[in-house]
Amino acid sequence: MLSKIVRTVANQLVLFILIFGLYVIAHGHLTPGGGFQGGAVVVSGVVMLLVAFSSQDLKKSVRERVLSIMESTGALIFAILGFAGLGTVFFYNFLVGSPIFGRIPPTGPNSGDFWTGGFIPLMNFAVGLKVIAGLSAVVLAIALFARGEEMEE
């Protein structure tokens, strides 16, 4: 556990890191970034908490079951979206033209409409969920194992 200054700053900063990570995930179909990159940003916030506080403190608030369910949910959403377009071809973008995320942007350079992209934003969300849960679980498990403990179920 580090000094009080570091702990306070980390406490305030983690919110902004979280919001920035979620922004990168949500705008993956408009700007550079996407599920994995945004998830890695969020996990860097988790690592900052891990450095500032002790790993026992995080152990109380994060349970392995929750992370496991999150990761499985992400993988399931991804696979189901892939199989849902099977009427045409595997991974067919069936949401283009539909009310949700179905708008088609004008060809060429444009200033980005959020409701475009078909199932790509949903896939970004699924992959982001998966990466956040998976990498957090890995980092926490290694940090706790170094102290001879393990994550709570």
Binding site: G28, F78, A79, F90, G108
Partner: peptide, 26 residues
């Protein structure tokens, strides 16, 4: 842009044209 509706060509390659690779990666 016309086929996937996404401004980011890389995202449309990762998730749409080459979705099977991304499934393997996941």
């Amino acid at each position: 842009q016309n086929q996937t509706g996404s401004n980011s060509v890389v995202a449309s390659v990762v998730f749409d044209y080459r979705g099977l690779d991304t499934l393997g990666e996941a």
